[in-house]
Design a protein around this nucleic acid. Structure first.
Lengths: 158, 158
DNA sequence: TCTGAAAGTTTTCATCC
DNA sequence: GGATGAAAACTTTCAGA
């Protein structure tokens, strides 16, 4: 999917907002919410996917339904600023399915990483391998999630 | 959707892993990946939704396709530990569409909050209103996202 | 109890206006 | 953007393992 810039009108914005909350609806139901016929909705969705505005469609699991789920936010600083080191660090994290999110950030820390694991043993194994025993991690701090008040990846579109 | 605990077998786990990456596939295509007929796949998905394992289906937007997107991770500490204050704080954040994620955490900070806004002016307006000018926020620090290396909400299911 | 296949229904897709 | 018919997908039912 290419991702050239395309203009979005009000209806596109409405449609994207709806789809980011619930994409499990028929074109007719979506049409009612944005004031369009099913075929018009279909045309717009096709266009939004084609131009890469809509990156993908996924299901989200209920955190409560995942047994022994431990969510943790780790802030990480690497040893030195070096592109190669950053690349390697990112690649290691990307290869781990327990790494839910990775953000490179500015300021005192280099990265914010969200881990999703099953139980403390699993958490320790994963963060140990990816952070404690990593060659280029200078320091990191773990913030254990007591309650995921809101999750999701919804982006404002205007 | 109720969320009583239900047993998941290997095929359920495979199916959930696939759906968390890409839910925009036909039952037949899904069936091929997990080794089941389309109707069997459909039955399992229905069951997983009914029991709340699958919370919802959503589209994810490409961050690059969102104009002037600013992502920021804020760590926040409230003035005092009080259930009522926490409730109010959470509710204010939940009402803001620019608040993408909220995690209550243990340790030196009380919350990790991810903001998604359009441009610095918007970012400052939102964090000003929700954090700086909030009555019960003691302090907070902002980590601006330079690069979202991985996003998503995929949870490991086993 | 769960599967696979077939029938019936709904939705989606492509073309037309 | 809306409407229509054709194609595809989904849902249900049923027989068998």
């Amino acid at each position: 999917m290419p991702r050239s810039e395309i203009p979005l009108d009000d209806i596109d914005h409405d449609l994207l907002a709806v789809l980011q909350r619930d994409a499990d609806q028929t074109l007719g139901a979506l049409g009612e919410q944005v004031g369009l016929s099913p075929s018009a909705v279909q045309r717009r969705i096709t266009r939004l996917k084609k131009h890469g505005v809509i990156a993908r469609t996924v299901v989200e699991l209920a955190p409560e339904a995942t047994s022994d789920l431990i969510l943790a936010v780790c802030v990480v600083t690497l040893d030195r600023e070096s592109n190669e080191r950053h690349e390697r660090f990112q690649q290691r994290l990307l290869n781990a399915p327990e790494v839910q999110q990775i953000y490179m950030v500015s300021g005192d820390w280099d990265y914010v990483v969200v881990f999703a694991t099953h139980g403390m043993a699993h958490h320790n194994e994963v963060t140990g391998r990816l952070l404690s025993d990593a060659p280029n991690v200078r320091r990191y701090t773990t913030l254990f999630v007591l309650k995921p008040v809101r999750t999701g990846n919804a982006l404002p579109t205007r």
